[in-house]
Computed example of a mutant assay.
Amino acid sequence: MTAPIEVTKGEAEAHPEDVLKGVGSEAIQGRSLGRIAWTRLKRDKAAVAGAVVIVLLILIAVVGPWFLQDPNAYHQDLIDKTMQRPYDGWLHSGISWEHWFGVEPTTGRDMLSRIVLGARISLIVAFAATLVSVAIGTVLGVVAGYFGGWVDTIISRAMDVFLAFPLLLFAIALVGVVPDDMFGLRGNGLRVGVLVFVIGFFSWPYIGRIVRGQTLSLREREFIDASRSLGASHAHVLFKELLPNLLAPIIVYTTLLIPTNILFEAALSFLGVGVIPPMPSWGGMLSLAVPTYQNTPFFMIIPGLAIFITVMAFNLLGDGLRDALDPRAR
């Protein structure tokens, strides 16, 4: 038999509730996974800078064209007919108080207005194509990983076929045979729709493979077995149990897929199968700058920097989200 513990007079006795609450302080509060990820993301200065640039770019693309000059207005009085370049400005760029980014070397169109309107086109195509590819890839990846067997075999082989498809050549050929009027669309509306279809529909296997691999791992976890033992249907397991746990990798890959689609749209516009001129696009502006880059190198620098800064901002944000949403990160 052990001796009773005696507490001498004057000594403080710590009660369990005081340990949990803290003497004279507020009660300890738990943090959700979302709050922990947000705290990690705020510490990543590069990711925050990328997010700020993306927000500013979206705002400029949405409201900018309403406050700028006409992007298709010609200013031939600013162009040297002999040298085919602007008279004034650094590196013969035509930069002035009226044209902050200069003017095009042959037409005199305002570069700032065309860059802003080109940002709208690039973001519309990139976001819409990413939404299509993420939706298709997520659904098919979850189905393939969860059911397995012949379902997984068919979807996996379809992924292999799409990944081996010459996407750039197909896009060039498809744009060349698409009529001027289809599905009630015509002109640049139809061209943007074709770009979204080509980029989005043929890019889903990339995210589909990632989602399939994560699903193969998650379907063996205890909470999935518990849900099945309680009589949950396949639809409930797929959309209520698996998809919420796949949200983090889907968000991360989405932020990394958007800059890839921006580059692909710029490449198509550079090759002449993007939006129809005079509608500006960053890739189309680079294509117009190639013949005159020796006389006016600034004309190539501006759209190149726009593409570089945008892609870099999305990549920094994607890396930051990956680190913030990784449960193994410190």
Rank of each mutant, 00 (worst) to 15 (best):
W204G: 00
M1N: 10
F264N: 06
M300C: 07
Y293F: 15
F201R: 04
Y74I: 10
S32T: 15
A61K: 06
H75C: 01
Q76E: 08
A119S: 13
V134H: 00
G187T: 12
E17W: 13
S133T: 09
L263S: 11
E13A: 11
R330N: 12
F223C: 10
F264Y: 07
L59H: 04
W38S: 12
E104N: 08
Q294R: 15
V175M: 12
Q294E: 14
P205S: 05
E13K: 13
H15T: 15
R330F: 07
R120N: 06
V55I: 15
I262C: 01
I79R: 00
K81M: 07
H92S: 12
L190Q: 10
D18H: 14
W100Y: 02
L218W: 03
L242G: 02
E265G: 01
L20N: 06
R330G: 13
S122M: 04
D180Q: 13
I207S: 01
V211D: 00
E13F: 13
A37V: 07
V116C: 01
G89N: 04
F298Y: 13
L218Q: 05
T130H: 00
G102F: 00
W204C: 01
E98N: 11
F101H: 00
L263W: 02
G137S: 06
P179K: 11
A61D: 06
P244M: 08
L168C: 06
K42N: 10
L325N: 07
A37Y: 00
M300S: 15
P4A: 11
E6D: 13
E6R: 14
L169D: 08
R191F: 05
E222L: 10
M182Y: 14
A144G: 03
R120L: 09
Y253F: 10
M182V: 12
A144L: 02
I224D: 03
D225H: 09
K9R: 14
G34Y: 04
